[in-house]
Design a protein around this nucleic acid. Sequence first.
DNA 1: CTCCCATATGCAAACACTTGCATATGGGAG
DNA 2: CTCCCATATGCAAGTGTTTGCATATGGGAG
Lengths: 176, 176
Amino acid sequence: MSLKHAILVLLETEPGSGYDLLKRFKERLGYFWNASHQQIYLQLKNMNQAGLLQCEQQPQVGKPDRKVYKITHSGHEALLEWIESPAKVSRVNDALLVKMYAGHLVDKHIILQEILQHKKVHQAMLNTFLTLEEKYLNMEAQEKAGYALPFLTLRKGILGEQAWLDWAVEVEVFLT
Amino acid sequence: MSLKHAILVLLETEPGSGYDLLKRFKERLGYFWNASHQQIYLQLKNMNQAGLLQCEQQPQVGKPDRKVYKITHSGHEALLEWIESPAKVSRVNDALLVKMYAGHLVDKHIILQEILQHKKVHQAMLNTFLTLEEKYLNMEAQEKAGYALPFLTLRKGILGEQAWLDWAVEVEVFLT
DNA sequence: CTCCCATATGCAAACACTTGCATATGGGAG
DNA sequence: CTCCCATATGCAAGTGTTTGCATATGGGAG
């Protein structure tokens, strides 16, 4: 039930269309919340019907109308209520580890190759995060203060990816 | 589509009932794959129909019959095919981080309290993993060799939880 | 001139997962 | 004596997510 709340978070600071949200998910919540455009558009429709959002249609030429959503009072209340009520510890479902568990069934180079592929992705994410971190650390004190909490989520991404890469080293040592 | 494959992994070494699998999930794959009993029973039924598993009914007194499933040749092939084909990088959907991102909307003690609650769970998991690690490290060389790959998945759990707890320290420093 | 990408939205079907309910017994704690 | 836990299985309804399809234009690369 949290895509709804993630959307409320992203619309809380400024209104936006489904497409805008798609970009904001990639840029801001990408590491800890994933959403496809189909999911977002459907959710926006439902949330509009439920009165959490308001929609303003902006006609455009040659393209479908841009539907700009903004959060309503009711939406804001729902967001606060959600933040204040406890969340479950997020569960992990990681197919790669299931494979590794049963890796004895295949040649170990198959597992190693897959680890190396995944490592590339994790290394790329870490690099993105480190760039963002540097940007934050170079901000002036006042601007910095406004991004303190997003920065903490970025730190989660950095520590998580570093742990992943440390683990990959252990795996490589064992499999080569 | 991986619950199916996780079940194949757990049945590959020895047959078992739905209830057995539930326990095996908790003991062995718990950190990286979660499954409820409803999901497992349904999946076993479907996989039996699809010919990946064979079922033998053991009558019992006072309890429902135990249905013991074992992997078929076709199931074994499906498992190998899955292990050999690349898996996507698993996506993270972490509500706690979405909350933290928007934490400025509420009193910071609310966020801090929630972090402390989650920390308990992660600390408990880490302790469980460290106990299992010690058990592994005390095994004799021969037995050790047989558990090398499961041990690597355990290491993933340990490094992951340690990173989580390191992050929690940063959050606490900031929020107090 | 064509192909791909960004912009911009959406439906429908299938698959996956959660939540609530339902049944039935034996054993231990309080 | 009652309540909870472990054993043992399952259906049904709802919620959430993925995958495939559909449309339409402008701009840049080759």
